[in-house]
């Protein structure tokens, strides 16, 4: 009798283990895609912690224009400009609240010869010429239309319209070029994993058709809307419902997104210490990086930008350096 009971128990246990294994395998196949492209090759890194030209204290944003790399050197309150090989060219800004001063600049955007700098502390966007001349200031602190509560990143449309990730506002706002409010996605101040809502949005970018890609930072996903504002699709972990993880196509806090010239999207996956590359429909293509301080390793990859030749530049946050990568 005892032997039969034991056999039955073993059978049940075996069945349960098999069931769990099948479920895990099915989940893996469904939610962890394999790479479709080779990874990227590390080229070089530059920087180091400090205040001198070419050094950084919290690099948090990066953009590329006209063969130059613009870096938001956040805690130093300045923008540093380098050539594509990392040679220092110039800098502008200093910590503060006055026009031209910077209070924790975040993800940078260049459009039509102008640099857009969202400031986390000053709740505004300053627009500079690429030489560092201040052109105008958009927004101010608050949760009203056209106001910001820690703007983290933005995109600029072909007519100069702005799409701003309002981090503590839990929304993405569309503004006219002069800052007048047009509409928003998300409910002000309310976090949610529902479609069109956010859990601390960090960045926005546009594709060639004007579709709007929004990095939902702690929502661990990317949401896409057509130019009219209609939801198209989303991705990031199982069902893009905020579940984080280290697997292909998952995020653990997505802090920056940028399109490459071939039309694929790169995403800085902060706590996973890597950059992921996706097709515009969210198909996972490849990734690169890994935790560390050596060449090709990140201590939290926070921002990404892509040059016209396909080189990818990454702000390596806690290593206080910029890394350059190229396709294999």
């Amino acid at each position: 009798m005892g032997m039969i009971k034991r056999r039955t128990m073993l059978k049940i246990l075996g069945g349960m283990v098999s069931g769990v294994s099948v479920l895990a395998a099915a989940g893996w196949i469904a939610f962890v895609p394999s790479a479709k492209e080779p990874s990227y090759e590390f080229v070089k890194a530059w920087g180091g912690k400090g205040v001198r030209p070419g050094q950084f204290s919290d690099p948090t944003g990066i953009a590329i224009a006209d063969g130059e790399v613009f870096v938001a050197d956040s805690r130093n309150g300045r923008i540093q400009v380098f050539d594509l090989d990392g040679n220092f060219k110039r800098q502008f800004g200093r910590p503060g609240k006055e026009p031209g001063e910077l209070g924790r600049p975040m993800n940078l955007t260049v459009r039509d010869g102008e640099l857009y700098v969202p400031e986390y502390f000053n709740d505004r966007i300053q627009v500079f010429g690429l030489d560092g001349t201040l052109r105008r200031i958009i927004g101010g602190p608050g949760n009203g239309p056209g106001q910001f509560s820690a703007p983290g990143g933005l995109a600029v449309g072909k007519n100069g319209e702005l799409y701003v990730a309002d981090f503590y506002g839990q929304r993405v706002q569309e503004l006219k070029p002069d800052g007048v409010f047009v509409r928003q996605w998300g409910t002000t101040g309310q976090t949610s994993h529902a479609v069109g809502s956010f859990h601390y949005p960090t960045d926005v970018t546009l594709d060639r058709t004007g579709s709007i890609y929004m990095a939902d930072g702690y929502g661990n996903r990317i949401q896409v809307f057509d130019p009219d504002g209609t939801f198209l699709h989303k991705w990031g972990g199982p069902l893009a419902r905020g579940i984080y993880g280290p697997f292909n196509g998952w995020f653990t806090t997505v802090t920056s997104i940028a399109f490459g010239s071939e039309g694929n999207l790169f995403a800085a996956d902060f706590y996973n210490n890597r950059v992921q590359k996706f097709a515009p429909d969210g198909t996972f293509l490849t990734d690169f990086g890994g935790k560390g301080t050596g060449p090709g390793k990140f201590d939290h990859a926070i921002a990404v930008a892509v040059a016209a030749d396909g080189s990818v530049f990454v702000a390596d946050f806690l290593n206080n350096r910029i890394q350059k990568w190229r396709p294999n």
Partner: peptide, 12 residues
């Protein structure tokens, strides 16, 4: 507190 988006928020 590893992410500056949060660290800066607390500082602010």
């Amino acid at each position: 507190l590893a992410c500056p988006f949060c660290a800066y928020g607390i500082e602010k």
